[in-house]
Amino acid sequence: MSAETPEERRFEVGDEVRVALSHPPGHRRTPFYIRGKTGVVERYCGAFRNPEELAYGFDGEPRRHLYRVRFRQHDIWDGYDGPEQDTLDLEIYQHWLERA
């Protein structure tokens, strides 16, 4: 792990966040299906080297804050065939998130 200071942390547990609706080419760890969706920060996972840079042989610095975000299934999928309370969690790097 590097000692390089990561970017400033912008979100806390409980914050409502929206995933960027953006489709840049290249290696991305934000699945297509979650882009543009709104959820709530469930936990802060730590700061990690940026996989979008590591994937091309760069060092991934500065590290990026990673959050676990919880979404209602009915907010993700039109016509989700399950009860209202079902949820989906996934990890989103801070640079993909904006305040909702």
């Binding site: 760890r29 934000t30 699945p31 979650i34 996972c45 730590g46 990690f48 996989p51 990673l66 299934q73 065939d81 399950g82 009860p83 309370q85 079902d86 949820t87 989906l88 969690d89 996934l90 990890e91 989103i92 790097y93």
Partner: peptide, 25 residues
């Protein structure tokens, strides 16, 4: 829930199914 059924696992409607997409670290 449909996938769980294919494994023979039925989760009642009043229980929350929480999927974790293991997409990063």
């Amino acid at each position: 829930r449909a996938v769980l059924e294919e494994f023979g696992t039925t989760v009642a409607d009043d229980v929350t199914v929480r999927v974790h997409d293991s997409n990063a670290d």
